[in-house]
Structures are given as C-alpha cells and as structure tokens.
C-alpha cells in the first residue's frame, strides 16, 4: 500500500496555535489545573501530551503530571491482524484516581482507539473525569465518542489518510492528507 501527499492542512505554526488554544481551553474548562493530568496515547499522542503540559505550565505556572498510554493490549482488532503489533510500556507514574485526566491523541477517526484508551486508563485507577483532546477530528465515528477539545475539524473521505507528523518522532511538525496511489 503506497500513499502520496494530497495536501498539507497544518504546518508548524498552525499546530502550535491550535495546541495553545487547546491548552487555554483545558485550563478554562477545569477552572485552573488543580487535579488535572495529561495522558497521551502512543505514539503521537505522547509528544502532544508533553507539549500541552508545557503550554499549560507556561500559562498557569503549574505543570500538570504527564503520562503515556500504550493501548495495544486493549485494541478490538487484534484477532483480525495477521501480525501482532509491538507492545510498548504504559508510563503513567502517578495515581490517576480522583484526577481530571485529559486524554490526548493526534487524530480521532472511528473512536476505537479512544475506546481502548478509556479502558486502559480505567484499569490504572478511577479518575474523577476524563476529557478528550485531539489535534485533528476527521469524522466517521463508529462509536458514541466526542472530543472535548479539537485542534481542527477536517472533513475526509474514508479512502484518505490523515498523517500527523511531530518533530519528536518525525523530525518536523505538519499535518497532511494522503491518498492511496492506485
């Protein structure tokens, strides 16, 4: 399966602005950062969670705890995959019980990753509430899941792929829509 870039919808600056706005919205929705923690879903939700924590700290002067969730073992499509995906560690080194958790991912699509993330999170403790922040909402939900904070709504067709690049993993920051090469 080969993909080619169709068009770029975000660059470094627009990603930064979107994340900064989300950071403000998180603070506003939670009336501060007391009891708030940010947890990213591997892989690209991880770096985004750390960036949101940095931004929240620069606005409020308090850094919320940050964690990274590996949801591989919670996927609902494992038996449909020919090969098992690599499992990585979940690194949430604080007690989430009683906290307001902001779950972070790069793209929300069917909602199945978030469903897995919610289950993985709840197995670590009992948060007071869970909110969802995503950089891109591309539609086509298959589960009743709705993000609380969205960087950009992007209408897509199911044949397209939304590719989020983050400098921590990919070397640069950008969001592109890709399509299959026939």
């Amino acid at each position: 399966m080969k993909l080619r870039d169709k068009n770029q919808i975000m660059d470094e600056m627009s990603m930064k602005r979107a994340l900064t706005r989300i950071a403000h919205e998180i603070i506003e929705a939670n009336k501060g950062v007391q009891g708030v923690a940010v947890v990213g879903i591997r892989r690209r939700g991880g770096p985004l969670a750390f960036r949101l924590a940095d931004l929240i700290e620069s606005i409020e002067g308090v850094r919320p705890p940050v964690g990274v969730l590996d949801i591989t073992l919670y996927r609902d499509d494992l038996t449909a995959l020919a090969n098992q995906p690599q499992v990585h560690r979940t690194e949430v080194h604080f007690d989430i019980t009683g906290m307001s958790i902001v779950l972070v991912d790069d793209v929300i699509y069917t909602g199945r990753t978030v469903r897995a993330g919610l289950d993985a999170l709840i197995d670590l403790g009992r948060p007071k509430r869970i909110q969802l922040a995503v950089l891109i909402d591309r539609g086509h939900r298959e589960l009743p899941i709705k993000p609380d904070f969205v960087g950009k709504n992007v209408p897509t067709s199911r044949e397209e792929v939304v590719s989020v690049c983050v400098r921590e993993i990919d070397g640069d920051d950008k969001v592109t829509i890709q399509e299959l090469v026939p």
Partner: peptide, 13 residues
Amino acid sequence: MGISAQSTQFNRR
C-alpha cells in the same frame, strides 16, 4: 485505528 500495526513475523509460527 490510529496506530500502525508494526509487522512482526512471530505469530506465523
């Protein structure tokens, strides 16, 4: 889902 299935040959065994 949002993450790619990194291909491993293990469970061909």
